[in-house]
Design a protein around this nucleic acid. Sequence first.
DNA 1: CTTGCTGCAAACAGTTTGCAGAACT
DNA 2: AGTTCTGCAAACTGTTTGCAGCAAG
Lengths: 143, 143
Amino acid sequence: MILKKKKIFNDYATSKGLRSTNQRTLILDVFLSTHQHVSVEELYLKIKCGYPSIGQATVYRTLKLFVEAGLARELLLHDGQTRYEHIISGEHHDHMVCTSCNTIIEFEDETIEKAQSEIAGRHGFLIKSHKLEVYGLCSSCRN
Amino acid sequence: MILKKKKIFNDYATSKGLRSTNQRTLILDVFLSTHQHVSVEELYLKIKCGYPSIGQATVYRTLKLFVEAGLARELLLHDGQTRYEHIISGEHHDHMVCTSCNTIIEFEDETIEKAQSEIAGRHGFLIKSHKLEVYGLCSSCRN
DNA sequence: CTTGCTGCAAACAGTTTGCAGAACT
DNA sequence: AGTTCTGCAAACTGTTTGCAGCAAG
């Protein structure tokens, strides 16, 4: 899985004539090793441990590369920070965000996707992507 | 409709002991008279025409009041600006955003809402709100 | 008169950008 | 060698905040 992602990035890098640098390799490693939905800040701090001279700008720039390469997706949740999540071979999922403890539950639903296409069809709209976030309280916080 | 909203806000203001000021009245008027999904900047500029001494901070503060009062909703789309839309008597709807011309089509769907509650139920999750945005090309831009 | 509201400017957070030097090919 | 990439710091954008004066109750 991780190897596959590295390959995706290398292929992308090659196809675009990008260079392979220590920073990029390291950022990719750390990104792949983190749980989902990391903020740039979180990643930056983690990377700084193993490579103290890294600059924030590099992390920002590299994450954008990952998005272009198709292995990460940008998330704009409600905490004012851009977060990045892994893309697992084109699969899409949505999020239930607990507003109390910030736990994120991922889910996927056929019915919803179908309903969307149906509505889009009715409006002559061509879907490229979508984003569904459900906010509320998770099972441990609702009590 | 507009009168009703004014009443909602007045009731809220009274209940919270807020004062009625020219600025608030004007901002409410302009907000109610605009099309959906205004950014703070857009509103600010419109208001500045009729009331040049208005400050941005007041617009920001007042819009937050509207949200608290239940007559506006904050939207975080993908253009880095917070936008506000009208809430029509508790009704909820979702958005299809054309990434080419920025047209926003609103829709509502029973099936999707139901599927959500069903999934939430399965996870013991208590839904407070949700946000669904579909991105793609509208009928005029897809050609 | 008391307290809340406003406008201003400064502060802020997250992100982007210009640039000189370093690193890859 | 030539060009891309990096780190730094400064710039920027959207938003928030502190404060002195103003205005509503």
